[in-house]
Design a protein around this nucleic acid. Structure first.
Length: 975
DNA sequence: GTGGAAGACTCAGAAAACTACTT
DNA sequence: AAAGTAGTTTTCTGAGTCTTCCA
């Protein structure tokens, strides 16, 4: 509606209306409008009123807007603009009938519609085709045509917008002739078509196979001085690809260059795909070079297209080259690509032993048992050689066997990953380690908005204001209402305010001005156009780029959390005694950097300051650390990302350890069973604790300090957390676990365990420890005697993974992919329940359930009607008109049709009920945690391979990257 | 040999950011 | 076509586990 005229209204009210309406508080917004005069001391005018209507309509409250509109006509004389806004509002709700009603009323009352009014209405009518692909285009087109006619009769000429709207419909309806007609009509009327207009017509013609006509339009367009965009050309290229018109595509590509239209990345990709399918690899090469030169690409799609093209043509060596290049450029090839190539290579094995490549030589060096200095030296030599070999690859002079080896090496490195790190002695994690350090949060920018104390504005220094703002912006969170949070915040803030400051008591503080300012800033950000947002994002990415990567032994690895935590108020979980405390800004002189000796040390980003220390410790994997300001006993670390070799290797080790437990588990279970009655109290407690950890997947339960939230694990369970259900062998377990997540479970246990727990509880107060002779150290020491490296947490991993493995393999085949994914998710859910992984209820859950319930009620109504009609028809009576029939007369209401409809409705009801059950069950279950941390990815990958489920249905992009080490697992893998 | 503190790494849910779909 | 919404992914940082170090 901006075209209807901007006006400078009271800005604050404007924002207020928008926020209220956006929150669905339309009544309050109207109230505020009524109050406006009192506050601004100026009469509200017509423009304010239009603004209110417009905002209501924009947010989909056309009905409310209608009420307001009808109610105030006497005060503000309606006009064309108001009517247009109302029409817009109803069109937006996809109710063009109502919009048309307004339109008629408007005309009847003598208000002349203008071109905007018509366009809004036209758009409203035409958008149905966008929304419902199945709609009858004929009817819509007719209506649109009628409206255009009417417009002209009224003496209003349709503009570019009007034509664009209808052209869009023709496009979707595949009406090239109408499209062409409209175009010539436009020209006749002297309206200049834009690039979008032409592209729209060309797209329509191309998709209907009328390439000659499309080309004509293209020429015309150029002749008229409108430069075609890459999108325009892509219409042609797509069509050429389908028809395998290599020559035409090539010609057009040349033409594109002549017209100095730079192809987009998708242009290049389409062309690469086209020509590699047609086996014109020389042309592909040319296009590839052009793409590189233009800087538009390649992206992973380009590589995939090219590599597959080469592969299909059995040009394995070249495809290997590009896989290498792809990886060098930071794109991860699909594993299927690698596997294919690997197979192709092993099929025609030859004597590669004599032909060791540089890459392999380096690998050999790494595996040899050399001293550190020797290794480093040789590695450096190897990597220099490697660099030369890379240039050779680029120059396409590499021998075939080396390429084979290269592809093999990639695959090998996937499975073997960094075994050498483990084998190469005493805790050494790396030989060379380079990175660019960390990013400190930007300094605080004071906003100068004054908060109120006892109703009066107060002066705050930037430091004081910063802390006040931290609190103010948390107004909407639960924290802001917690007394402990407020107390801790005030204590820390008072220190910064100083003894003499006027601010003393929290209840006299009013932070709303700062809160409002913050909301306003947020709104401003929201208002940014997509383009601006994109630019901003790119800028940030560019700034961060150098910090995102580290080099470990010459290998490029992604850094995880390179941003130092900004200052804020501590948000502990549950009833944390330190919630609300000020988490102060970290200065460089608190930060220790760890980096390879001889590597350039990242410069301290703040002038005249320096790092606390620079270490070269190769037994650890962190890049930087500092003391946690909230808990000085703890540290904050900067590590590599989950996709790194370090993390991947330890992840794999973790699952291998859990798999090892499988071989020991029977013995271990026998072992703890026999100790349930052990006279040695400690041994007895160890056995019972081990039982609970094994059966219920509890955490070990380390001791905690008083200044942490009061949560427990197995070893720290208190008497009050476990009760015996009388006359059974059941335990009722109830405690707060990690992150203050509630664990509630009543479970039948071994009678001996039941008895033992009863004894442990005897003579103790509710708050005392159940396992008083036990801590995690003793428990783990015992477990280690039973299996090397066994600790309590291994049971959780083992039980989670073995459960998934069992559940997945007890299911049958003969289902489609979607159903198989459901099977997987169900298994995943069982594991999440076992591990007690929870999430907070989604905010809209209640509303969503209500909606579903509503749907069921409606469907049941429909069902009733259908059944009544079935009875009537069977008795030979005429069927009743039903609401659900949209007023269309029903001619052939045979019992068969009715029965089918009843069946359909029943199915729908059942499906909705199923949806509701599922939703209810999952509302507080978090599936992700087990997937990322407890389920051996090889189980999932192997299952996907066996059942032909694309792995992307199970793992998202990050998980795919994190689990790269698991992708080449054999399909027969079982945990 | 013990126990507590220091240290390093994994696991965890909330919240922000993004995406796909709807209106 | 643009904005809203529901759902998903990513980021953030708090909260555990377990090892190592040291007196």
């Amino acid at each position: 509606m901006d075209q209807l005229g901007d006006k400078p209204t009271s800005n604050t009210f404007d924002i207020l209306f928008r926020r209220l309406i956006a929150a669905g508080l339309t009544r309050q917004a109207i109230q505020a409008f009524d109050d406006m005069e009192r506050f601004t001391k100026r009469e509200t005018d017509r423009e304010d009123f239009v603004d209110l209507l417009d905002t209501l309509c924009k947010y989909g409250y056309a009905k409310v807007a209608t009420e307001v509109f009808n109610g105030r006509k006497f005060k503000f004389e309606p006009d064309t603009q108001m009517y247009t806004v109302m029409i817009y509002g109803w069109c937006k709700l996809n109710r063009p009938e109502v919009a048309e009603k307004f339109f008629r009323e408007m005309v009847d009352r003598g208000f002349e519609p203008n071109v905007v009014t018509y366009n809004v209405l036209l758009n409203g009518i035409c958008r149905r085709t966008v929304l419902h692909p199945g709609t009858h285009f004929e009817g819509i087109i007719q209506k649109a045509e009628n409206l255009l006619d009417e417009m002209q009769k009224r003496g209003i000429e349709p503009d570019v917008t009007s034509y664009s709207i209808v052209l869009h419909v023709y496009n979707r309806a595949h009406k090239p002739d109408l499209s062409l007609d409209k175009l010539s009509l436009m020209k006749e009327k002297g309206i200049f078509p834009t690039v979008a207009t032409y592209t729209s017509v060309i797209k329509c013609l191309c998709s209907c196979g009328r390439l000659e006509d499309a080309e004509e339009i293209l020429n015309e367009m150029v002749a008229n001085g409108v430069s075609p965009s890459p999108t325009t050309f892509n219409c042609f290229f797509k069509e050429f690809q389908g028809r395998k018109h290599a020559d035409n595509a090539l010609k057009l590509y040349k033409k594109m260059g002549d017209l100095s239209c730079t192809p987009s990345l998708s242009t290049y990709n389409i062309l690469v795909g086209t020509f590699s399918r047609l086996n014109k690899m020389d042309i592909v090469q040319e296009i590839w070079n052009d793409m590189k030169e233009s800087g538009a690409g390649p992206d992973s799609d380009s590589y995939a297209l090219l590599i597959h093209g080469l592969y299909e043509k059995r040009r394995w060596e070249e495809s290997c080259e590009f896989v290498l290049e792809m990886i060098e450029n930071g794109f991860l090839p699909q594993n299927i690509t690698l596997e294919k190539l690997y197979k192709a290579n092993t099929d025609d094995q030859d004597d590669e032993e004599d032909n060791l490549t540089l890459i392999e030589r380096k690998e050999k060096l790494e595996e040899d048992n050399l001293t550190l200095a020797e290794r480093k030296e040789k590695l450096e030599a190897a990597s220099a050689l490697d660099r030369i070999s890379k240039t050779k690859i680029a120059a396409k002079k590499v021998t075939s066997s080396s390429l084979k080896c290269a592809s093999k090496k990639i695959i090998k490195s996937r499975s073997k990953s960094t075994n050498l790190h483990l084998n190469s002695g005493a805790g050494k994690k790396w030989t060379t380690f380079a990175h660019n350090g960390i990013v400190l949060p930007p300094p605080y920018k004071p906003h100068g908005v004054k908060m109120l104390y006892n109703g009066e504005q107060v002066e705050l220094t930037p430091e004081q204001e910063e802390v006040a703002t931290m609190f103010a912006v948390m107004k909407d969170t639960e924290f802001a209402a917690k007394p402990k949070f407020i107390e801790n915040f005030m204590n820390d803030w008072r220190v910064i305010l100083g003894k003499e400051h006027v601010i003393k008591k929290f209840h006299l503080c009013d932070f709303t001005p700062i809160y409002d300012w913050h909301q306003n800033e947020k709104d401003k950000k929201k208002q940014l156009s997509a383009l601006e947002r994109k630019a901003l994002k790119e800028e940030k990415l560019k700034e961060d780029e150098r910090y995102m990567w580290a080099f470990v032994d010459g290998k490029k690895e992604k850094v995880g959390n390179f941003r130092v935590e900004p200052p804020g108020l501590f948000r502990g979980r549950g009833e944390h005694p330190k919630m609300g405390k000020l988490k102060r800004r970290i200065r460089p002189d608190e930060i220790t950097i760890n980096i390879g000796k001889g590597e350039p040390v990242p410069e301290c980003p703040i002038p005249n300051e320096r790092w606390k220390e620079v270490k070269h410790d190769n037994t650890v994997t962190w890049l930087a650390f500092w003391k946690n300001p909230i808990d000085p006993k703890a540290f904050k670390y900067v590590f590599l990302d989950d996709t790194s070799s370090w993390k991947g290797q330890s992840d794999k080790d973790k699952y291998e350890k859990a798999r090892l437990l499988k071989d020991y588990i029977l013995d271990i279970r026998a072992n703890y069973r026999k100790d349930f009655r052990n006279k040695d109290l400690m041994k007895q407690q160890i056995s019972v604790a081990a039982y609970l950890i094994d059966m219920l997947a509890l955490r070990a339960g380390n001791e905690k300090d008083d200044d942490e939230a009061d949560t427990v694990g197995c070893c720290t369970l208190k008497v009050e957390n476990v009760s015996l259900v009388p006359q059974t062998n059941k335990l009722e377990i109830n405690f707060l676990g990690k992150d203050s997540i509630k664990y509630e479970n009543t479970v039948e246990v071994d009678p001996l365990v039941y008895k033992a727990i009863g004894e442990f509880k005897k003579g103790k107060n509710t708050g005392e420890e159940l396992f008083d002779k036990l801590d995690t150290y003793k428990l783990n020491a015992h477990l280690k005697e039973l299996m090397p490296g066994l600790t309590a947490k291994v049971f959780r991993t083992y039980n989670a993974s073995i459960t998934l493995d069992k559940l997945l393999n007890s299911e049958i085949m003969n289902r489609n992919v979607a159903e198989k994914v459901v099977v997987y998710n169900r298994a995943n859910k069982e594991v999440a329940k076992l591990c007690n992984h929870q999430r907070s209820e989604p905010k809209s859950h209640g509303a969503q359930m209500l909606k579903l319930r509503d749907n069921i009620v409606k469907l049941k109504g429909v069902l009733d009607g259908l059944e009544t009609n079935l009875h009537r028809v069977r008795k030979g009576k005429a069927p009743l008109q039903l609401d659900a029939d949209d007023g269309k007369p029903k001619k052939n209401f045979t019992p068969e049709i009715l029965q089918r409809k009843i069946k359909l409705t029943l199915d729908k009801i059942e499906k909705t009920e199923r949806d509701m059950d599922l939703k209810k069950e999952l509302k507080t279950t978090a599936l992700g945690t087990s997937k990322t941390n407890y389920l051996d990815p090889r189980i999932s990958v192997a299952w996907c391979k066996r059942h032909e489920v694309p792995i992307e249905k199970i793992f998202n992009k990050s998980l795919l990257a994190k689990f790269a080490w698991a992708m080449d697992v054999d399909p027969s893998f079982r945990f």
